[in-house]
Amino acid sequence: MERTSTGVPNEKMLMWAFIGSECMLFASLIATYLAYRGRSLVGPYPEDLLNIPFITVTTFVLLMSSLTMVLALSAVQRGDARGSRVFLLLTAVLGIIFVGGQAIEFSHFAGEGLGLSRNLFSSTFFLTTGFHGAHVTAGVIWLLSLWVLTMRGRLGPEKSVKVEVAGLYWHFVDVVWIVLFTVIYLMSGS
């Protein structure tokens, strides 16, 4: 490990600063969603379409992926090759299930007449959740790449910072979803 002035590895500090930047990105999206809530001129409206039980399940899946991410990092740090493989893959699969749920939701909405350019709800909903879904997808690709490395035995404890940084990103994306789930789904009735 290189010496750094603060003791924090460079990659980790880069990710923390990046997360700071991403906060402003999602804050802009969420603020726009809130500012435009209830201002669609034509339906369908959020309360007509949002399937809270279904998304609660995929939300649970995504939150569980944070747990498996922690276990994956721990396995890599301990040099547990089997645990590394299993938990990295499991985290990615949980992420895929979440994105799959989003795809089902999107196509269901489209079938109900809520295209992207239908109203303000569709504009803000698809962009906000779409941005988040793109982040999850990027994270899945990242995790699968790490998983391939573990399969080839190229991700030992000395490289655990690579997994730690991916984990920081993954947890951040999960936390953003907690906010989105609250703002878009749980607050949709009020």
């Binding site: 402003m24 990105l25 802009s28 726009t32 992207l116 350019s117 504009s123 962009l127």
Partner: peptide, 22 residues
Amino acid sequence: ILAFPPFTIGIVFLLFDRMFGT
């Protein structure tokens, strides 16, 4: 890093307004 993201979101909105009718 804190000022550019809101602008980025602004131009993404504008892109969607212009290209996809949001």
